[in-house]
Every structure is written in structure tokens, then in C-alpha cells.
């Protein structure tokens, strides 16, 4: 751990879907400012963990503590309001709106009060939205409807929207999935640069071990709902169990069934 301040703690999380064990005895402490990556084969429980932390799924038992306070029973909105924001494996955007308008909605949702009789595109709001787009090098796309944008740009926009609230914890669900191999590193580079100024804790799900090694301080390896390794990247990746069950199981990064349903919802 890079710091002594525990910002997020999962205690004995259990979750089953019928006969499938999605989470078992998960005990994790995340330090403030840490860059934590989650690895594991599809169905190993990474997204379930992320969904439980962000309130989309309720664990069958166990507790989730945010800065020491119990947030297990809160819904996604309440968790977001407490400073835990996330991006999605399949970007969740407002398709007919432009990239700029998407960020403006994120600003509108961020808790500031807006008058009913003032237009949404006040200079101040537009400037803030533009600045956020610029941080992610998205300014050329500001006025394009997002449904027309390429995959990598959509991914970045999805993350930019999650960052509008200045979250304490940012969860990124497979930020580089659906992006071509050449684009993965530049994309991750852009994200990390955009986050550099923030003291934000980042938890991200990733299948590419080079990215895991390069961008995380610490790695959690999941297998069949359990955490089988928890250490810094080099240690975890040299762990025989991880090599057998996680990195050995090479395969295309396809979305687990749950994530697809969620995206359609």
C-alpha cells in the first residue's frame, strides 16, 4: 500500500447468481490515491465487484465501507454523490447529443443548482465542458453527435463524464476494451495524463498485462469469485496460481453476459 489512509474497504463480500459464485470472501482495502487494477478471466468476478462497489448490485452478505462509512445499501446515485464515479465497458452516452452536450449533462448532474429559466448552455457551463473535453484531447469532437464517434473516442468521453464530479474514487471498467491494439497505450496515456492533476483513487479492470504492469501500483487477481492474489504487479504476475488461472487463459476480451444486459438497460 502506498498510503495509510484506507478510502475503500470491502469486508467478506459474497454474491451468488443461482449456482454461480460471483464473489466469495472478498476482503479488500484500497488506499487513497492508489492505482489498483483488477485482472481475471471473464466471469471471474471483476465486474461484479465493481458493480457492488457502485451500488448496481447488492452483495448477499458483507459490507462496503467508504472512508469508514457503510455504503453497502446505497444505490448508484447515492454512491456517485459520495464521490465514487465509474465508466463503463460499453460507453453509456446520450447518443443523439453532441460530445459537448454529453459533458454538459454530466455537469448538470453534478449537484450544482441551475435555474429553470436559464439556458443550459450558459458560458460558464460550456467553458467547463470544453475544458474537460480538452483534458481528454476530445475538443475536435465537441460538436459531433456521439453516435458517430469512433470507439476509442467514446471510451474517453465516457471516462471524461465520470470525472466531472471530481470523484474520490474512479472506477474504469475495461477502459481499453473494444479499442484496437495500437490505440490501447495512447488511450491509457491520455487517461492517466488527464488524471495526473487529481488525487483520485483509480480502480480499473484490464485484460492487457502490459497496461496492468505499467499503470497500476497494485493488482487484484480474481478467479471464480475469489481474490487469489493481491500485491504489486510484478509479484502478482509471477504468482504461479495467477499464471495458471488468469494470464494463462488467454482469450479475446468479450463482455460477460451481465455487462451486456446492463448496457442495454
Amino acid at each position: 500500500m502506498t498510503s495509510d489512509t484506507v478510502i475503500l474497504e470491502a469486508r467478506d463480500l459474497q454474491k451468488r447468481f443461482g449456482a454461480v459464485v460471483a464473489a466469495q470472501d472478498i476482503n479488500v482495502k484500497v488506499a487513497s490515491g492508489e492505482k489498483l487494477s483488477l485482472i481475471g478471466a471473464n466471469g471471474a468476478g471483476k465486474t461484479t465487484f465493481m458493480n457492488m462497489v457502485t451500488g448496481y448490485l447488492k452483495p448477499d452478505s458483507g459490507a462496503i465501507l467508504l472512508e469508514g462509512g457503510d455504503v453497502t445499501k446505497l444505490n448508484p446515485r447515492q454512491i456517485t454523490q459520495r464521490g465514487v464515479c465509474r465508466s463503463f465497458q460499453i460507453p453509456q452516452l446520450y447518443e443523439p447529443m453532441t460530445a459537448l452536450e454529453n459533458v454538459m449533462v454530466a455537469i448538470g448532474a453534478s449537484g450544482r443548482r441551475f435555474s429553470f429559466f436559464q439556458p443550459a448552455d450558459l458560458n460558464e457551463t460550456v467553458e467547463q465542458a470544453r475544458a474537460m473535453l480538452k483534458r481528454f484531447a476530445l475538443d475536435p469532437y465537441a460538436h459531433r453527435p456521439v453516435s458517430e464517434l469512433p470507439g476509442g473516442v467514446r471510451k474517453l468521453l465516457d471516462i471524461a463524464m465520470a470525472l466531472v464530479r471530481n470523484p474520490k474514487i474512479l472506477l474504469l471498467d475495461e477502459p481499453t476494451s473494444g479499442v484496437s491494439v495500437d490505440e490501447k497505450f495512447p488511450l491509457m496515456e491520455t487517461v492517466m495524463e488527464a488524471l495526473a492533476a487529481e488525487a483520485v483513487t483509480v480502480i480499473f479492470v484490464e485484460h492487457d498485462m502490459d497496461i496492468v504492469t505499467r499503470y497500476s501500483d497494485r493488482v487484484l487477481a480474481f478467479y471464480q469469485g475469489q481474490v487469489i492474489a493481491d500485491d504489486d504487479p510484478s509479484e502478482v504476475l509471477s504468482d504461479p496460481a495467477v499464471q495458471k488461472y488468469v494470464t494463462g487463459t488467454a482469450g479475446p476480451a468479450t463482455a460477460p453476459a451481465g455487462a451486456e444486459k446492463e448496457a442495454e438497460a
Binding site: 448508484p76 446515485r77 446520450y94 447518443e95 447529443m97 443550459a120 464530479r165 446492463e262
Partner: peptide, 22 residues
């Protein structure tokens, strides 16, 4: 207004509206 824009956002993607904290 911003509130009106949020209504359009609700129509397009409710999940994201909740995940943005609204």
C-alpha cells in the same frame, strides 16, 4: 434549461443519469 436537458438525458439513458448522480 439544464433541467430540461437532464430530461432529454433521462430519455436517452437512465442508467447513466443515475451514475452521474442525478
Amino acid at each position: 434549461s439544464m433541467a430540461g436537458m437532464m430530461a432529454l438525458a433521462v430519455r436517452e439513458n437512465e442508467l447513466r443519469v443515475e451514475y452521474l448522480g442525478s
